[in-house]
Design a protein around this nucleic acid. Structure first.
Lengths: 205, 205
DNA sequence: CAGAGTTTTGACCCTCAAGTCAATACCTGA
DNA sequence: TCAGGTATTGACTTGAGGGTCAAAACTCTG
């Protein structure tokens, strides 16, 4: 009753890291091939362990899937929340910073996460709710900036909700569009996409 | 060797209709739940037949999937190609007509087809190519109008390809966004989306 | 109505992936 | 170094779903 939150003992930290490894591998595979098309044996193989080992950490495939989504989504959102360039200044600059960062994360670091924000239909229902929850928090970041820009008259938007949806739908596809590109070409694609999406709030480059 | 294309006999027409029914049911289910998550038994059940019956018409699940994509995609593209409002007039009006029609079809008639133009990753490779092919033809329609608008100076676009990709990504999600809406609310959502996408070429409503 | 052609059935096989678990290997601190 | 918990294995069960096929049911047409 006293020190319940006290000890992140060595053993617990090790366990935590292991779980993290598993989640990363799982998220990558799910993103690459789709949830239904990935077997736990695939995940295990990528980690050079056996399936049974995964069940030591997660009760089921769905549990693993859910955890993967949450971890990845939280991490991603946190990074955007703490992006310096998005903290202050004119809305246009802040929105652009958010867009660029979001696309960069999607393309360069978590091509894995493709679909996380799109709620792939074949995923279990329970996870749909979780993903929607994550999206709301994530969306809030963009929404605040856009609404501010609209209020100050800098942005011209028909409907904020629709504009945000279009941004997310487009960004979620970015990893696909960048397949086959490399080096500077990727950077250019990212910039083009950010520029194009700024048009949604009436900001020509 | 002589009259190979001659006879669409009664029996052949009946067969054709049956195939059409199967394709429709299959496309609906694939759209709703995702390719991998739909079993042929599911498809059969929706048609009140047994699995074996499907194999009388299609050699495999993949064959069925491929055929479903092609049929649906062709029909869809043809409708856009023959849209009167998209034939002549200022590019802005024509683009808007294309957008509105495309979204309407997506939302009202083929929510089934969700993902057809997004190339869901878990689908068999062979089908990716087919979908890409379909998309090229489909894209051409939009591209022509947009490029014309850019040439005449009416549109302001950073990059035509990127703008088109954003349009498609957004429209593909429209059925999801309209879930739970009904009647006039759907129409309004369609208009909002069309308006928002016009922003991508610099056209405020 | 008979019988040829067409369509549908339902029982069957086979593979693959989820999930279980007793036995084993691995640590680590006393 | 050995006793404790901790982590991992690999062989196993089970169920679902793709695919096959001979036999039954239907549907024309003579």
């Amino acid at each position: 009753m006293s020190a319940e939150q006290a000890a992140p003992s060595r053993i617990e930290r090790k366990r935590g890291r292991r779980i993290q490894e598993i989640l990363t591998a799982a998220a990558e595979l799910f993103g690459e091939r789709g949830y239904a098309a990935v077997s736990l044996e695939d995940v295990a193989e990528r980690l050079d362990v056996t399936k049974g080992s995964l069940y030591y950490y997660f009760a089921s495939k769905d549990a693993l899937g859910t955890a993967a989504i949450e971890t990845l989504g939280n991490e991603w959102t946190s990074r955007l929340e703490n992006l310096p360039a998005a903290q202050e200044g004119p809305p246009a600059a802040r929105l652009r910073a958010l867009l660029r960062e979001h696309i960069t994360i999607a393309v360069r670091e978590y091509p894995a996460a493709l679909g996380l924000f799109l709620v792939p239909r074949e995923w279990p229902r329970e996870q749909h709710e979780r993903i929607k929850e994550l999206r709301r928090r994530h969306d809030g970041l963009f929404r605040r900036v856009v609404e501010e820009g609209v209020a100050s008259g800098e942005f011209r938007v028909t409907d904020v909700g629709t504009a945000l949806q279009c941004m997310h739908a487009s960004m979620s596809q970015a990893p696909v569009w960048c397949e086959g590109l490399a080096g500077a070409a990727v950077d250019r694609a990212i910039e083009r996409l950010a520029d194009t999406l700024m048009m949604l709030v009436g900001q020509a480059p």
